[in-house]
């Protein structure tokens, strides 16, 4: 097990190095003059040249790459061309806001996805099964931006239950302002005892989180169901049944553990899906997170910020999948 962990860790580092290299060369092949963008409009040629030297863009690409990698080791991702602040600082501010949505969505999708899958498989062929199957196939097929708009239309426009967009009601920003401690608004409001803001922030999160979890929930539920049904048809389940083990133990203990391995893989992939979806969802719900930030970076060709975002999302994805691999290894000894 220890050996396995070490191997995974070395693999993880190698992947991250490869990822940052790819990101560097991809963004550098984008069109546009970074120095000109940095200095802004109406700049004199000598000003642009000075900015070029300042940013180190006059050096050969390979030297720039070396400098970039060295800086990365110190968590330095350069200066954003748009905000003129260190990219790392920008990211540290934006990441928690997005992760608050992502983590909730991931948790709900996993918990209810697995539960629904298990229930559907247990009552295979019944009305419950059909209902879950219907609901999950709809969940898998609906495009996320469309779902987000539908949610706004229904719950804001017609029912008025939830706010349309934003993180917090604007008047609360004056009366009970958010304190930035961890960056996770729900945690911050709780720590600072700001319950009014806590409920308001939670209220604002319901719709974006719903838009994020529905799709992955459908995928996870469907896979859990089919994986369980497949396992329950295996020889070893029949053999265990023949040796007098009760159906409940067979299903929830012997069966479920076998069925969970592919489900864990898909949960790892769902992390990517949800991260990607935050880009739309943050746009639609005007949520000031990483999605919003990257879109602005793309529009203004802010390549240092783009490199930061890509690298960060890639890192999260790789780490999430490593965790899933380790979990799979724990529940299924056949994985080597």
């Amino acid at each position: 097990m220890l050996l396995f962990l070490c191997k995974r860790f070395v693999g993880l580092i190698a992947l991250l190095i490869a990822l940052s290299t790819l990101v560097f060369f991809f963004t550098r092949s984008l069109p546009g003059d970074a120095a000109a963008l940095y200095i802004g409009g109406n700049a004199k040629p000598e000003q642009i040249e000075r900015a070029r030297t300042e940013l180190g863009l006059d050096k050969p690409l390979i030297v720039q790459y070396k400098r970039y990698m060295e800086r990365l080791l110190h968590a330095d991702m350069g200066i954003s061309l748009r905000t003129h602040r260190p990219v790392f600082k920008d990211l540290m501010e934006k990441i928690p806001m997005s992760f608050e949505l992502v983590l909730w969505a991931l948790f709900i999708a996993t918990f209810f996805g697995v539960s629904f899958g298990v229930i559907a498989a247990y009552f295979q062929g019944s009305l419950i099964d059909d209902t879950i199957k219907g609901f999950t196939s709809a969940a898998v097929s609906i495009p996320i931006f469309f779902l987000a708009l539908l949610l706004q239309l229904l719950f804001f426009n017609y029912l008025g239950w939830f706010p349309l967009q934003g993180r917090i009601d604007s008047f609360l920003e004056f009366t009970d302002p958010l304190q930035n401690i961890t960056g996770f608004s729900m945690v911050d409001t709780l720590i600072s005892g700001n319950f009014k803001a806590f409920f308001n922030v939670s209220w604002h999160m319901v719709l974006p989180v719903t838009a994020l979890f529905v799709g992955p929930l459908g995928i996870i539920a469907r896979l859990t169901r089919s994986s369980l049904l497949d396992v329950m048809d295996q020889d070893y389940i029949m053999a265990a049944r023949a040796s007098g083990i009760s159906e409940r133990v067979l299903f929830f203990y012997y069966g479920l553990r076998n069925a969970l391995s592919p489900v864990l893989t898909v949960i790892g992939l769902s992390v990517a899906l949800i991260l990607l979806s935050t880009f739309y969802v943050e746009m639609i719900f005007n949520w000031p997170g990483i999605g919003y930030y990257s879109l602005a970076a793309i529009m203004s060709l802010d390549y240092t910020a783009l490199m930061g975002v890509t690298l960060m999302i890639g890192t999260v994805y790789v780490i999430a999948n490593t965790i899933m691999d380790i979990l799979r290894r724990i529940i299924d000894p056949r994985i080597k």
Binding site: Y236, A239, A242, G244, S246, Y254, N258, D332, P333
Partner: peptide, 22 residues
């Protein structure tokens, strides 16, 4: 359930696939 495995047991053809792998 009180008879299966208790009073009547069964051994299957493929021994490895009839043992739970995990």
């Amino acid at each position: 359930g009180t008879i299966r495995g208790n009073r009547i047991s069964m051994v299957f053809q493929n021994p490895q696939s009839s043992i739970n792998p995990v």
